[in-house]
Design a protein around this nucleic acid. Structure first.
Length: 434
DNA sequence: ATCGGCTCGCGCAA
DNA sequence: TGCGCGAAGCCGAT
């Protein structure tokens, strides 16, 4: 494999024990560069390979629904790995502590993990890099062009990252080797997963491939034209799978060659989100906005807001705006809001809260709690785009927004049948029960 | 239906 | 140093 995907996190020597893959962001057996790297090392060292996953007590406000989706996917991964003679262990608690203890217990000779730019899971990596007595590295198995190879800095917009990605696609957009039956070590007893609630979205690697196949066969041809109409079902629906690492964006790209509009979103815009979160530590805070955006939002702090809602009123879809309530209802009921409505939804939270800080907090809280694809660099970047003009430009100045791009429901009506959307996602008069 | 202006700053050409 | 143009728009003029 291309070793530019790999980054050393400490400078310790390898030991003699098994290679451990601390699986975190990439929950799949196929098309996973972090696992492929761990396999290569274990073969070279002639040792067993152990995959470990640690379920944190709490992860950025994810709900039970999201956790069940994740766990069901992991159950499939555990089974598939065992069939390849690769041991799988499920832990729970603080990953930094539990994975360290696990590595000590099995006398790990080397540890590999997958890459993420988010603060909390990065802190686990920092802690392991400090405390592990053997070599530790991470592999960018999320981005097609590894985030540190695509660019050495925070990019200004999609247009500045795009040429850098395209220049390197020939090098990185390659076929994956298959994981073969591992010749060293043996697997332990089967992992017990508790009962998980079924949802409209089927979890796991196989389900993800089916969703991809359905998209390519039935929707991709009309994607460019219909992707911004929330009444149409022409999106790929892959974002939950991509978020949980149940499918590789690189696999999706290999299958979707020629679908340029889709590939632009799948590759450039998605990898721009990891670029933002990796190089901007305040990716979910006001401080992470550009200087011009902070200046203009500061100048409009005192503006009168026509409507002010509490987090609870937003959560229960109790605003005056039927379009906003419908989007919120779609998110709560389906766990997935249509991409086009997400911009409108976040911008209205800016408009109807006391400060941009509060708007960010409310938008991130709701997005992380209800979306299958929440708690993801895409979500933080999308919200920063909506509320803080990140990767966007300044526009005509107006109240509250300043020069941040404004949106209203006239725009929605221009583009699709808003009444039909509102009819479809109609919140009950009493609000929701949680 | 379509067009230009709004407004900032990066990145590249010169 | 100048200049083109950008992640999804709005608005008013034509």
């Amino acid at each position: 494999m291309n070793l530019k995907r790999v980054r050393r996190l400490n400078d310790r020597e390898a030991g003699n024990g098994p290679v451990v893959y601390f699986m975190d962001r990439e929950r799949r057996m196929r098309d996973n560069w972090a696992l492929i790297r761990a396999v290569d090392l274990a073969l070279e060292m002639k040792v067993a390979l152990k995959v470990v996953y640690c379920v944190p007590k709490e992860f950025l406000g994810a709900g039970k629904r999201q956790n069940d989706f994740m766990l069901a996917g992991l159950a499939e991964v555990a089974k598939d790995l065992r069939a390849k003679n690769i041991d799988f262990t499920l832990l729970d608690g603080d990953p930094a502590k539990e994975v360290l203890a696990f590595c000590k217990r099995v006398k790990a000779g080397f540890v590999v993990t997958d890459f993420t730019p988010l603060r909390l899971p990065r802190s686990w990596r920092d802690s392991l890099a400090r405390d592990l007595v053997v070599g530790f590295e991470e592999v960018d198995s999320r981005n097609i062009v590894p985030v540190w190879e695509a660019s050495p800095k925070k990019e200004f917009g999609a247009y500045t990252l795009r040429p850098k990605i395209h220049r390197k696609l020939a090098e990185f957009l390659t076929e994956f080797p298959e994981v073969k039956r591992h010749p060293f070590g043996s697997v332990g007893k089967e992992v017990e997963f508790g009962a998980m609630q079924k949802d409209w979205l089927i979890p796991g690697e196989r389900a993800a491939m089916k969703v991809l196949k359905d998209f390519l066969e039935n929707k991709a041809g009309d994607y460019a034209e219909k992707r911004n109409d929330p009444n149409e079902d022409f999106l790929s629906n892959l974002s939950p799978y991509l978020h949980y690492g149940m499918i590789s964006a690189q696999r999706v790209a290999l299958c979707a060659m020629g679908q340029e509009v889709f590939l632009e979103e799948l590759i450039v815009r998605r990898e721009l989100a990891d670029n933002f979160c990796f190089y901007e530590k305040n990716y979910d805070r006001f401080e992470g906005f550009h200087a011009w955006a902070k200046k203009t939002l500061n100048e409009h702090r005192g503006d009168v807001r026509d409507f002010l809602y509490s987090r609870e009123e937003f959560e229960q879809a109790k605003t005056h705006d039927a379009a906003w309530n419908a989007a919120q209802t779609e998110m709560v009921e389906r766990g997935k809001m249509h991409g086009y409505m997400r911009m409108y939804w976040a911008k209205k939270i800016l408009e109807w809260t006391k400060s941009p800080e509060e708007a960010l907090e409310v938008a991130i809280y709701l997005n992380d709690k209800y979306e299958f694809d929440g708690r993801d660099s895409n979500g933080y970047t999308g919200i920063a785009w909506s509320i803080g003009g990140v990767h966007d430009r300044a526009w005509g100045e107006r109240a509250v927004f300043g020069k941040i791009r404004y949106m209203n429901d006239k725009g929605l009506k221009r583009k699709f049948d808003l009444a039909a959307y509102i009819e479809k996602f109609n919140p009950s008069q009493d609000g929701f029960k949680f």
